[in-house]
Design a protein around this nucleic acid. Structure first.
Lengths: 196, 196
DNA sequence: TATGATACTGGACAGTGTGTCCAGTATCGG
DNA sequence: CCGATACTGGACACACTGTCCAGTATCATA
């Protein structure tokens, strides 16, 4: 019984449950799903479900965590070749969201706004880090406010972009986003009215 | 039986239910509340609840709608004396949120992010309208993206501000927010790097 | 391939919440 | 005062959760 490897049956069951979660979340939204739904879709006994996850939320968390590894790995390699201008996170996330838009729709939860806190926290960390690089952490609230500002704006824009089938490419939406983030509305719209 | 007036009993019951909803949402978050909880807290029979509202969500919607009238009335009077710089919505909403922070905490839902869609929609309308005034609606996606951007940023910042007991006054947080919104990060932080 | 370990299964169980209905009671407005 | 109507508590069927268990299928390995 090697410690590292996992019994095929376990891997199979978990994979099925996670797949089912994706499908159903995209279909009818996370909260509307029942454990029974998941098991039916996954073709797994309900009692089996509970031997793997204590509840629905834990399945979601585990699914996300697992999926995060991939993004994180790609994030690290990107980190080395980061560009000075703009965020290093936004472009790749837009790209990734576009490539796997079905999955992102699922993660966000169909109609409703059910973005899991894990993802938000992950992005927040990136943003805070990048902003600190620009500004240097003065220990004040400024960095935190700016972080929240950017994160909130980012998710809202991405949510909108994914929801509609816009013709905007990931590059385009990213550029608009970064323009708004760095230069503000005044730079994008007509009359620059400086606020101090 | 005058059409306009309402039976005292009805008014009393609905008021009690709404009060209970506030208290409990602030206490344990909206989703965790059951209809039974509300009725117990409100001291109203559970069957009575269902003669007034078909379910928990409808109670919330009705409560919010009712509460919105007040804000909307004050919004209209503000509209006449609007200032050219910045948004007319953000300051008053920060003020209002601060004055009734318990209630806003309740609306947002304790720990979790449960901002009801009604409020978000209401703010979105304001923002879209104000942005259109600045830019003029070109019919493109630009206005919509900017609107989403601002709304997302606004709620995230406000959420953070209400959650912690920061010493920042409504005026201060509003100013920082507007600065970020109109001039971007570059104007707030150190090195202005123009993005085109 | 045989075998012991272990993962899956289906069904039963108690517990909790929902939404509906009804007969009896309290309160309202005129 | 009295007819109309709102409230009440209790019962009901239903749905979902989370736990448990005995029986069965599948696994890893000797």
């Amino acid at each position: 019984m090697p410690a590292g490897s996992i019994d095929r049956r376990i891997a199979r069951t978990r994979s099925r449950l996670q797949q089912a979660l994706f499908r159903l979340t995209a279909e009818k939204g996370y909260t509307a799903i029942t454990v029974e739904d998941i098991c039916r879709d996954a073709d797994v006994g309900r009692s089996t479900f509970y031997t793997h996850y204590p509840d629905k939320d834990c399945l979601r968390k585990a699914t996300i965590d697992e999926h995060m590894k991939g993004l994180q790995a790609r994030g690290a390699e990107r980190h080395s070749q980061r560009n000075a201008k703009g965020f290093s996170f936004s472009g790749p996330v837009f790209e990734h969201a576009h490539a796997t838009r079905e999955m992102h729709r699922a993660l966000m939860g169909g109609k409703k706004r059910e973005m899991p806190e894990e993802i938000r926290g992950w992005i927040s960390k990136q943003v805070r880090h990048e902003l600190a690089n620009i500004q240097g952490d003065d220990g004040g609230a400024r960095l935190e406010i700016a972080t929240r500002f950017i994160v909130g704006a980012f998710f809202e824009v991405m949510h909108w972009w994914l929801e509609r089938d816009t013709k905007l490419s990931p590059t385009e939406i990213d550029q608009t986003f970064r323009q708004l983030a760095f230069n503000g509305i005044n730079a994008v719209f007509a009359e620059p009215t400086r606020i101090e």
